[in-house]
Write a protein that binds this DNA or RNA. Structure first.
Length: 354
DNA sequence: AATGCGGGGTC
DNA sequence: GACCCAGCATT
């Protein structure tokens, strides 16, 4: 009996018939477009990314336009996509390409991985797709596909498991068709070897899938261990001036919502009142907003001075000697959408308009 | 080697 | 509500 075709050949044959060939970053498949798409796709699903990618390309069609714009413009284009550090890294990388790489993205995985926001897997994903060279990519799809096909146990967040996945991926790499193979493993993971209800009977590598043989497809990959998450209460001052502009503060570059504009906030209601020369009794709470992060549950209590609303006149103007520096400023409604504002803050902002 | 980052999809 | 997603940077 003839030996089965190599893993990669079966995937490529499957992909030519069943794979995705119409993703926006595939046409044209330039290094710049591939790079931007890979950054957007980090921890973010394809369907979510597509409209952002189209808008981003219309606004920043090339490396130079991205390097020459402001961070606020990039954050504005990123608003709603999450993981805003990616937007800052994107622009930092564009600038580095101008200064250190002759105005282009480097064409080696090592040089790419030295740039902000690009790790080993993303570097290889860019190389394989932009230059059609085979390179190991281990993303969520590949982790799932390989942990099943080779029956690899353990949560991929553990380094030993990740090493094994990387080694498996390496041995399966073809010697040609690098771009199509990368797309093929991702497509197979996304559409056939899906997390729930995998369609094993349509899989081109089902005949030597170890998880399937052991009837353990449903148990692999091993899920992330559960853990308790903490809870934190946060007060935010929602205040408008007579012209309907809202007071926002730019957050420090590191940490949650780094570099984004938020209401002035504090964990202490009293500290917030003191900072803006308000008495605590003046502060009226709006309905709380709950925001869930991986490791933390935030309860955000929006506070307004005397129930003030935009357009209100005659209320005290919070003169409070707010010295609007670069990190503290007033913004008109038309400016909001171009700023980069975290989702819960935007929700509060919009609820005050309604 | 483990943890923080964040919004959305999906069941 | 639980769990995951085209991971990386930081500690």
């Amino acid at each position: 009996m003839a030996e089965a075709a190599p893993f990669a050949e079966r995937l490529l044959a499957w992909w030519r018939v069943h794979g995705r060939h119409d993703l926006p970053w595939q046409h044209p498949r330039t290094p710049y477009r591939v790079w931007v798409s890979e950054i957007m796709l980090q921890q973010t699903q394809v369907a979510t990314v597509i409209p952002y990618f189209e808008r981003f390309m219309a606004r920043f069609p090339d490396l130079l336009s991205l390097a020459n714009t402001t961070i606020d413009d990039v954050l504005g284009a990123w608003q709603g996509l999450g993981y805003y550090a990616r937007a800052r890294n994107l622009q930092a990388t564009a600038e580095r390409c101008m200064t250190d790489h002759d105005g282009r993205l480097p064409d080696s995985a090592e040089a790419l991985a030295a740039l902000p926001g690009i790790g080993a897997s993303t570097a290889n994903a860019i190389i394989s797709q932009a230059h059609d060279r085979p390179a190991v990519v281990v993303d969520g799809n590949v982790k799932r596909l390989l942990s099943r096909h080779a029956a690899i146990e353990g949560w991929p967040g553990r380094s030993a498991v990740m090493r094994e996945l990387w080694a498996q991926a390496e041995t399966r790499l073809p010697t040609a068709h690098g771009a199509d193979y990368t797309q093929a493993v991702m497509d197979l993971g996304a559409t056939v070897c899906s997390r729930r209800n995998p369609r094993c009977n349509e899989c081109p590598v089902r005949h030597d899938c170890q998880a399937r043989r052991q009837k353990r497809v449903g148990e692999l990959p091993t899920p992330r261990p559960k853990r308790d998450i903490g809870q934190r209460r946060l007060y935010m001052l929602v205040h408008f001036d007579r012209r309907g502009r809202v007071l926002l503060e730019r957050r420090p570059p590191a940490g949650i919502w780094g570099g984004l504009w938020c209401f002035p906030e504090s964990e202490s209601r009293q500290a917030l009142a003191e900072r803006f020369r308000l008495s605590e009794v003046q502060l009226k709470a709006l309905p709380a907003v709950s925001h869930l992060l991986t490791h933390l549950k935030l309860e955000i209590i929006p506070l307004t001075a005397d129930g003030q609303r935009p357009g209100d006149t005659g209320t005290q103007d919070l003169a409070l000697g707010v010295e609007c520096a670069e990190h503290l400023d007033w913004f008109a409604p038309l400016q909001w959408a171009r700023l980069g504002i975290p989702k819960p803050v935007l929700d509060i902002l919009e609820s005050t308009r309604a």
